[in-house]
Design a protein around this nucleic acid. Structure first.
Length: 512
RNA sequence: GGCUGGGUAGCUCAGCUGGUUAGAGCACGGCACUCAUAAUGCCGGGGUCGCGGGUUCGAGUCCCGCCCCAGCUACCA
């Protein structure tokens, strides 16, 4: 059994969960569940990034202490993940004591192993009082901050701890050259290579002006203790997770699943920190795309534009998961639309899988008293197994994690089952007792097809997969069945029951 | 501006190192069937492969130029 440790980005705790957050967690959850059924010993970490000036500000605006505020936000996120069936093993919160202690340890480890990498330096920048942050040239128009054009920018000099990121340019280049799979998909890897080619600049490791965070372990030469800068607090969460009570998080991680907007932090700063601390690097950074709504992008810091609850309520959490995983390529961008959601649901879940289950269970009850007959495996099984092998290949990580390709391969088996029924015409065979063996063979094949579908769909639609598995009378659970077992299973003797439709067709519009 | 990737049927996309009538899914039209959630299966219409040159016996596939789109171009995360 091989170990598989995957993480998602920790979500910034200054608002409620939105579609963008959900896409990442659902995709990661499908990967986690898939690897459990591959037989891997999976540890799946998600969580919250709860520190920083913005959080402190938002809390203040809400009239709350920062900790009370993030407690409330974390609760909302966790409730959403429960609703969506996210099967994380650990929920990180950076405001938790073990994280503070472990971040401090990591920073001290860097001081110890790479004494030259942290140093004091003055940073001079254009500070916007409205934003309470330094502005980059790109954000400045006519000497004013784009967001606060009525105020003038101040030139402020601040003394901080800096991290000698520049010293890692060559080592990072060498690592990417030796491990082409380290950053995926390829387009993100190209961006990182371009960045390394231009050379890295040192980055702040501590900040003055706000206290909501982990105190930087060593004071500046003038005695001031500053707050650890966001990336030296947030990124280490993947590593600090193992210090939490009850955690079995190993190190290094097999894959960090992140949004494409934060690839560089994970592919450059984080590995450099680990090198400085003399710790092993994660095997892969997988950067997924974004989902837009009405042309507007979502990201961690974008506003809520779609009530997640509404989308989930439409056809249930599993259908929502299916739609996102099927219609949004996990290595690129996609767009949410109600029309598309309904079209995919109707065509593939109601008319496709749902109807297939319905016609198969009906025939088994009608022709076999609900007991799956004995039948030998044939070409249909072989063709299905080829598709499933493709699904496993897509999820193996060699080419990153194109989750949509895996699901697509599984969906092909639904079409094949419908075709088999049409070709074999069991209702014709049933009229002729001499064709009994042929009829049994077809129905047994269909049972195996549905059973395998339940098992392979479990990572994508955990609840619906169990409902199907139960209707088929399978032993144990679909999600608890390994793919290896599914590939060889025999359903002879299972008691099938035709229950409620798995995916009811959408209600026609009122008045239509 | 620079770097990277992309522009192929109404929509979303496949088309590896150049080679026969350019494919899939969805949508659309017709036919068949009745086990099924008026579901399913079969057949079909539909493309100047962004534009213009070039190389080649032959280019969606290579070269040059141009147009358009997306991402990146570092301390909000």
């Amino acid at each position: 059994m091989s170990r598989f440790y995957l993480t998602t980005a920790i979500d910034y705790a200054n608002g409620d969960p939105h579609l963008g957050h959900a896409l990442e967690k659902i995709g990661a959850d499908a990967i986690a569940r898939f690897h459990r059924q591959l037989g891997d010993d999976v540890w799946f970490l998600i969580g919250m990034d709860e520190h920083g000036q913005k959080v402190a500000q938002t809390a203040e605006q809400a009239g709350m202490a920062p900790q009370a505020f993030v407690d409330r936000v974390a609760e909302r996120f966790q409730a959403m993940w429960t609703t969506l069936g996210i099967s994380h093993d650990q929920f990180m919160r950076t405001s938790a004591a073990p994280h503070h202690a472990a971040v401090t340890d990591l920073l001290e480890r860097i001081f110890r192993h790479s004494p030259d990498d942290f140093y004091e330096r003055s940073y001079t920048g254009r500070y916007c009082v409205g934003c309470e942050s330094f502005k980059q040239p790109a954000d400045i128009t006519d000497e004013r901050c784009a967001l606060h054009p009525t105020r003038s920018l101040q030139e402020i000099t601040e003394r901080n701890w800096f991290f000698r990121l520049s010293a890692y340019t060559d080592r990072l280049k060498a690592h990417l050259a030796a491990h082409p799979e380290f950053v995926q998909p390829a387009t993100r890897r190209n961006e990182i290579l371009a960045l390394l080619e231009q050379g890295l600049e040192d980055v702040s490791a501590s900040r003055a002006r706000f206290a909501w965070g982990v105190p930087f372990p060593r004071p500046l030469s003038d005695g001031e203790t500053q707050t650890t800068y966001v990336w030296f607090d947030a990124l280490p969460n993947y590593w600090t997770a193992q210090t939490f009570p009850g955690s079995r998080a190993p190190w290094p991680a097999d894959v960090h699943i992140v949004g494409k907007d934060i690839t560089r932090f994970h592919a450059v700063i984080w590995p450099a920190m680990l090198m400085a601390a003399d710790l092993p690097l994660p095997a892969m950074i997988w950067a997924h795309g974004f989902i837009s709504l009405g042309g507007e992008r979502f990201s961690k810091s974008a506003g809520v534009k779609l009530e997640l609850a509404d989308a989930i309520a439409r056809f249930g959490p599993d259908a929502f998961r299916y739609y996102l995983l099927r219609d949004v390529p996990f290595d690129g961008d996609g767009a949410f639309s109600w029309e598309r959601f309904e079209a995919v649901y109707t065509a593939e879940l109601a008319n496709g899988l749902g109807n297939l289950a319905s016609r198969m269970t009906a025939m088994l009850e009608k022709y076999c008293d609900g007991i799956v007959p004995t039948g030998v495996r044939g070409a249909t099984d072989a063709a299905d197994l080829a598709d499933y092998a493709e699904a496993r290949a897509a999820m193996a990580g060699r080419r990153g994690f194109p989750v949509h390709e895996a699901l697509e391969a599984v969906v092909r088996t639904v079409g094949r089952a419908n075709q088999l029924i049409q070709d074999a015409k069991p209702w014709v065979l049933a009229k002729n007792p001499a064709q009994r063996e042929a009829l049994d063979g077809v129905l047994a094949t269909l049972a195996r097809q549905l059973a395998r579908q339940a098992v392979y769909l479990a990572p994508f639609m955990p609840q619906k997969a169990e409902a199907l598995w139960q209707a088929l009378g399978g032993p144990g659970t679909a999600g608890g069945t390994t793919f290896a077992a599914a590939d060889t299973l025999d359903c002879a003797g299972w008691r099938v029951t035709k229950g409620e439709g798995l995916f009811p067709r959408p209600e026609p519009p009122a008045g239509a």
